[in-house]
Simulated scan of single mutants.
Amino acid sequence: MTLLHEVYQFTIAPFQEFAFMRRALVATLALALSSAPLGVMLTLRRMSLFGEALSHAVLPGVAAGFIFFGLSLPALSIGGFLAGVIVVALAGWISRHTELKEDASLAAIYVVALALGVIMISGHGTQLDLLHILFGNVLGVDTEGLMLVAGVSSVSVLLMAGLYRGLLLESFDPSYLAASGGRNTLYQQSFLMLVVLNLVASFQTLGTLMAVGLMMLPAVSARLWHDTLPAQLVNSTVQAAAAGYAGLMLSYYASVPSGPVIIVCAGAFYFLSLVFAPRGWLPRMLRRPHLRA
Rank of each mutant, 00 (worst) to 15 (best):
E6F: 05
A91C: 08
I121L: 11
L130C: 03
L73E: 04
G70K: 13
T43S: 12
R46L: 10
E17H: 12
A219Q: 05
V196G: 03
F135N: 12
A179R: 14
T98P: 00
I94K: 01
Q127G: 15
A36L: 08
L206D: 09
A254N: 06
R165P: 02
T228V: 03
Y110I: 03
I94V: 14
M120N: 06
I94D: 00
L114G: 00
L274W: 05
V118S: 06
A83D: 10
F135C: 13
V234R: 14
T185M: 05
Y164C: 09
G80Q: 11
S190Y: 03
F50M: 14
V256A: 07
N235K: 11
L214G: 04
S77N: 07
G247F: 10
V264L: 15
Y110D: 01
G84S: 06
M285Q: 15
V157L: 14
Y8V: 04
M249A: 09
G39C: 11
L139C: 07
S258K: 08
M47I: 01
L233N: 04
H290F: 14
L114S: 00
S273D: 06
P174F: 10
T205V: 15
Q9P: 00
G80Y: 07
E52K: 01
A243H: 03
N198T: 07
Q16N: 11
V58R: 02
L42N: 14
V62S: 02
L54V: 14
H97I: 04
Q189V: 07
V261H: 08
F269M: 12
L100H: 12
I94E: 01
A246R: 01
V220C: 09
A178Y: 04
M41C: 05
L44Q: 11
Y110F: 14
G145Q: 03
R287Y: 03
G117S: 10
A241V: 09
A241G: 15
S175D: 14
P14R: 10
L54W: 00
G51V: 08
V155M: 11
L54I: 15
M21C: 12
G181K: 02
L168W: 05
S55T: 13
L224P: 02
A179F: 09
I263V: 15
S202G: 12
R23K: 04
A13D: 13
R22W: 09
F69P: 00
H5T: 06
S72C: 11
Y187A: 02
P257G: 06
R292K: 10
Q16V: 14
G51P: 11
S175M: 12
G92D: 13
V85S: 10
L116I: 13
P74T: 13
R45F: 09
F50Y: 15
A293Y: 05
G79N: 07
G123C: 03
L71Q: 09
A219Y: 06
A27S: 15
V212P: 00
V212D: 04
L250E: 05
L169M: 15
A83W: 04
P218M: 11
E102A: 05
I109F: 07
